[in-house]
Design a protein around this nucleic acid. Sequence first.
DNA 1: AATGAAAGGCGCGACAC
DNA 2: GTGTCGCGCCTTTCATT
Lengths: 161, 161
Amino acid sequence: MSMDIIDRKLLELLQADATMPIAELAQRVNLSQTPCWKRLQRLKEAGVIRAQVALCDARKLGVGTTVFVAVRTNQHTETWAAAFTQAVRDIPEVVEVYRMSGETDYLLRVVVSDIDDYDRIYKQLITAVPLYDVSSSFAMEQIKYSTALPVRPAVTVTNNG
Amino acid sequence: MSMDIIDRKLLELLQADATMPIAELAQRVNLSQTPCWKRLQRLKEAGVIRAQVALCDARKLGVGTTVFVAVRTNQHTETWAAAFTQAVRDIPEVVEVYRMSGETDYLLRVVVSDIDDYDRIYKQLITAVPLYDVSSSFAMEQIKYSTALPVRPAVTVTNNG
DNA sequence: AATGAAAGGCGCGACAC
DNA sequence: GTGTCGCGCCTTTCATT
């Protein structure tokens, strides 16, 4: 799938605001509506654009506190991993989960209303699946949160690196 | 701002798919189009719904690798904090930044194509602002990533906790 | 006062050029 | 890639309880 500078500009715009009408998108990239629309179809079909969603205000939903949870396991088995995966996917307060290299086996981002609320999720988690070690760090402030991925040309290979 | 069970259901639906036409949204919450539409307007004006965006596939954009960067500073000043904030906001590969409690002062999530690419961002970061300590952990696998925040009733206070 | 039904504006989606 | 046409959705208004 080719991705020229116009496609990248479209992705940039749509990642910032997906309500923008095609007419406006088109003129921002100096195109008429039809080719612009065709590019969007192509990007969707290729799965580059994988969804269009509403973003909510975490504080207004009463989950303004983020907790990072570092998890270690002593059961390095496929069945444990499957159970853990299922458990975290089933808890909506757990919004991000990564399997890590290094000391920590898994890193979770959990959104809650306060410390007591976190304790509720913590208990839910350790009840659902056995954890060897759990270490929680609270975020004091969210300085940046972006769902927009960087859209840039394929890294150019040069000889003077 | 009151938020009944219908509003919460609407948020749940829109956080999963914001392309859903009002007619369908309406019938999913057992309402007709107008009252449903009015609720959406209200949620937008109140800032509960803060944006509507396109989500892209990280791998297909060549940034399928996530790196968590723990940063410590020795300059606990307002000016340093402002410079740091500006620096991370200006780097699109840095998608999330939190000010933490505990050992780590700041935790960053960075998306890159590979280790070499991360080194590029790392250099960019330490050039922009002085950092006392930087510790990077690579994610092997993204097990969960959701932009949908949990939408639940205000925590009911009971006497038998 | 809030819901359910109906009409107009308009942006999306397929054709020919 | 550009311009045109029709369909269907969003938005508003009116009638209703």
